[in-house]
């Protein structure tokens, strides 16, 4: 376990002071930093899905948010370079409906998913536009987007956006008629 300084994230507004106590230590796994807060009170020790207490997405700075309509326009425009879109929610949701071309990583409140995230972005330039999204729960209760965002910030990625999903993926993306793919 390696302890890293989280203050830089705090200064940049990525992690608010209200959550610093949960984020003091970072467990480095697979090249990405896993916030120490990512310990699931529901999972026993040693379970692979050790995940989360609340990791408030409100700590994601407003400048890092992207609205569904804006992302849909980008995807429709086919602009180059294409954003790398990553789903950090649960697999059953991904199989039912996901943003076409997005990569499934898994609930980023777990160390395992953050390891996968690290592997997935390892070869990307740090300026690459990466869009994270979940949609598992109402925005204020989503445990997955903040750990993923913080991990990418910590890894040095400078162009990371988080899709703002107010209610859930069904309501805020599928119901709006934005493009959807199914299956793995």
């Amino acid at each position: 376990m390696k302890t890293l300084d989280f203050a830089s994230l705090t200064r940049r507004g990525a992690i608010g002071f209200g959550n610093v106590f949960l984020s003091i230590a970072l467990l480095v796994t697979g090249g990405l930093a896993v916030p120490a807060r990512a310990a699931n009170p529901l999972a026993g020790s040693g379970t692979p899905a050790e995940s989360t207490g609340p990791a408030a997405p409100s700590e994601v700075p407003a400048t890092a948010l992207i609205q569904p309509e804006a992302l849909a326009k980008i995807l429709k425009s086919g602009q180059a370079p294409k954003p790398v879109v990553i789903q950090v929610g649960f697999h059953v949701l991904y199989v039912q409906a996901h943003i076409p071309g997005s990569e499934f990583i898994g609930p980023a409140s777990s160390a395992e998913a953050l390891r996968k995230l690290g592997q997935h972005v390892a070869a990307l330039p740090h300026t690459q536009l990466i869009v994270l999204y979940c949609g598992c729960c109402p925005w204020v209760r989503c445990p997955n987007v903040l750990p993923a965002y913080a991990a990418l910030q910590q890894a040095g990625f400078t162009n990371v956006k988080v899709l703002y999903i107010a209610h859930n993926f069904g309501t805020d993306w599928v119901d709006h008629g934005y493009p959807v793919a199914k299956g793995d």
């Binding site: 699931n40 529901l42 999972a43 899905a49 649960f90 697999h91 059953v92 949701l93 898994g106 609930p107």
Partner: peptide, 16 residues
Amino acid sequence: SLDDDPRAVRAALRQF
């Protein structure tokens, strides 16, 4: 449960 990992669910069963 729509968890990806049943072990997390079993832990939750004990907790709750």
